[in-house]
Design a protein around this nucleic acid. Structure first.
Lengths: 122, 122
DNA sequence: ATACTATATTCATAATCTTGAATATAGGTG
DNA sequence: CACCTATATTCAAGATTATGAATATAGTAT
């Protein structure tokens, strides 16, 4: 396995729109699967499949806290690469960054950071 | 097509060991197909196939000069991305850079840059 | 025009990727 | 233990990619 094989293996692991979206979510630090599910509006099994691809490529690792599994990027150098993409594709991301505050997300991290919409009783 | 689709399309185009090697050869500027053939020791038809992939992805373009077609990278930003790869894969390239001087290569650029081995007449 | 050279295209098959559906598992809670 | 919740795995079919072989084409030179 030469230099280019190693590089193409890595690139193949991230050459996928959902996996790129997941990595972007992990920019702010570790997040649980259910948060990705709520943020990306994709089914849990599918996200888990993509996470396994990233894990086998040794790009992410996970940590359990109670019921939740929190994933994080192992090598922050990956973000330096991701940052070069907009200038190449010419498509700039609309949202400046992923913000961790999603009212649809049931995970503990979201629960503490979000002001839940109050149900008004009449 | 969202931001991540555009990015993954680009990444897929370069996620291939031969295409990465071709891009590396093009760091020094345009090169003809026969030069890649000699440098990579791969068959012409195969290299041409990979060049078509890069061309369709609008990463390279070509220019004819006599019999030879010279390919070049359109967006130099690509090299900034390629430069981030060694720190991620942990595998550093052996040769510092591609040098254009290959005695096996019949192309005009090589012919002028290389001191051909002299045949000693006895 | 003919022949040659450099490069491109077509075809076919094996391998790999994509993705949805269904199901399994592991850990926590009562 | 029984059940719930969060996450993982397996399966399968279709799509795409990888790659070798054979062949075509477009310029060039004579």
């Amino acid at each position: 396995m030469n230099v280019y094989d190693a590089q193409s293996d890595f690139l193949k692991a991230i050459s996928h729109s959902t996996r790129l979206a997941i990595l972007d979510i992990l920019r702010d630090g570790e997040q649980c699967v259910c948060h990705m599910e709520a943020t990306l509006n994709l089914r849990q099994a599918y996200i888990s499949q993509q996470l396994m691809v990233l894990k086998q490529a040794e790009l992410v690792d996970s940590r359990r806290d109670g019921l939740n599994l929190y994933y994080r990027v192992i090598k922050p150098e990956i973000f330096a690469l991701l940052d070069t993409l907009p200038s190449i594709t010419g498509v700039l991301p609309k949202k400046p960054k992923h913000k961790h505050a999603n009212a649809e997300c049931p995970c503990p991290k979201c629960a503490e950071g979000v002001v839940k919409p109050q149900l008004i009783q009449i």
